[in-house]
Structures are given as C-alpha cells and as structure tokens.
Amino acid sequence: MSSRVLFGFHAVGVRLKTAPQSIVEIYADPSRRDARMRQFVARAGEAGVRLIEADAERLAKLAGTVGHQGVVARVQPLAQTHSLDDLLDGVEGPPLVLVLDGVTDPHNLGACLRVADGAGVHAVVAPKDHAAGINATVAKVASGAAETVPYFMVTNLARTMGELKERGIRCVGLSDDADKTLYQADLKDPLALVMGAEGTGMRQLTRKTCDDLVAIPMLGAVESLNVSVASGICLYEAVRQRGR
C-alpha cells in the first residue's frame, strides 16, 4: 500500500493521536524551536514515530506547498472499516449526513469536512466522478477532520440518495430558487443535507432526487455563499433544532 503525505500541525497531530502506527516518518524543521514545535516533537517521540530533520525547502517539496508549518508526515492510508450502510446501522439517534455534489476544489472540501466534524455529521457523501478526493491539501484545510469524518465516494449519487430515503432519511437540498428558507424547514428528523458546487449548484438528477429544497436568505448584494460556509449554516441550524 503506497504512502501519502500529510502536512501541518493539525492534520499530522490528529493522525499522531488516532493512528500513530500508520505514520511512516515525520519530517520537522529544526530551525523552528517554539513551544508548539517542541510539544509536537515530544508527542512524536512518545509515540515512537521516526522523526527526521528537514529544512523548509525540503519540506515544501514534500508537501507541494510552503504552507506546511514546518511539519510533514508520510503515512499509510487508513482503511475504511465500515460501509455507509454499516455506519448508519450503528448511529444512535437521528442520522445527520452531508451530501456534496460537484465539490471539486480541495480547499472547499477540506473546509466542508471541518465544519461537518464540528456539527457532529455522521458521514459525508460525494460522487466518485464529480468530486475532490482526500489529499494533503484537503487534510491541511480540514485541520484533522479528514481523519475523523467518514468520507464516502459513491458511483451513483442519486441511487445512494434513494437508499438513504429508503432508510427514512430525508434529503433536503440547498437551492437559491427554493420556495422556502432553511429556517422554515424541519431538520430534527433523520437528515441528509445536499449541497451543490458553487456557481452550478446541484446537478439536475440530484435536485430531482431531493425530498425538499430550501434557500439561505441572502439580504445583501452577494447572490450566493461559499459551499463550506453554506454547509456550516445549514448543519448548525440542524444542530440547533435538535437541541444538541
């Protein structure tokens, strides 16, 4: 199994906390001697992970960006231990799922995963052919959430949504031209919030498969929000209604 790269304190730190045995080695900038780096190096040492000194130039080459914060790790991919069905079978209380249709930008996906983790989302679902996969940039932006939120890429998104509906999970899509607002919708029951890509929105079949459509009220000159911001607003409205 080929290794992949994580970079940044949050992304590497969460892997160090949750699955240190999967870390092949960590590269750290020896010129950075602040408290955050000292604590990180100590944690890596306690976990028995191989630590290699590397300057900023080498770290940038490994990470593919200068935004590595002085920390880069080579890790083994974590096996997905559950299918979406198995995961939902084990959920206590009403499931909360985030469906992303056409989110191809790694920064947007990372931000969506981060807000999904914060809102207690049980799974994030996306199509295999119209979505970003998990890579180092996604993991960095997600600040560890790429390691904690199950992310399922499915062959047929509309069919998967149909299977969610068979489980009694309502699919509520966000659309600028919906007749009612997010705040008029009942989000307390089992729910899949469906978000489209910026600009194009949901694909037509995805839209048709939704049980209901809602809009976020836009009171200024801007016509739409970034998909991760919109996801956060919708998810936390569901959290508020559920009294969590």
Rank of each mutant, 00 (worst) to 15 (best):
G48D: 13
L51Q: 09
I52V: 15
I52P: 00
D55C: 04
A56L: 08
R58E: 15
L59I: 01
L59M: 03
L59S: 00
L62S: 05
A63C: 01
T65C: 11
T65D: 02
T65M: 08
T65Q: 06
T65P: 11
G67N: 14
H68T: 09
Q69E: 15
V72K: 09
A73R: 11
R74N: 12
P77F: 12
L78G: 03
L84Q: 05
L88T: 13
D89Y: 04
D89Q: 06
V91W: 10
E92Y: 06
P94G: 00
V97K: 00
V97A: 00
V97S: 03
L98D: 03
L98E: 08
L98N: 02
V99C: 10
D101M: 06
T104Q: 13
D105W: 02
D105V: 12
D105P: 09
D105Q: 10
H107E: 14
H107C: 07
L109R: 00
L109Q: 11
A111G: 01
A111L: 06
C112K: 02
C112R: 05
L113I: 12
R114F: 06
D117L: 10
G118P: 09
G118R: 05
A119E: 12
A119S: 14
A119H: 06
V121I: 10
V121T: 10
H122A: 13
V124P: 07
V125D: 06
P127F: 08
P127H: 11
D129C: 01
A131M: 12
A131Q: 07
G133V: 10
G133N: 07
G133P: 01
G133T: 13
N135W: 02
N135H: 13
A136K: 10
V138K: 11
K140S: 09
K140H: 10
E147Y: 03
E147D: 15
E147L: 15
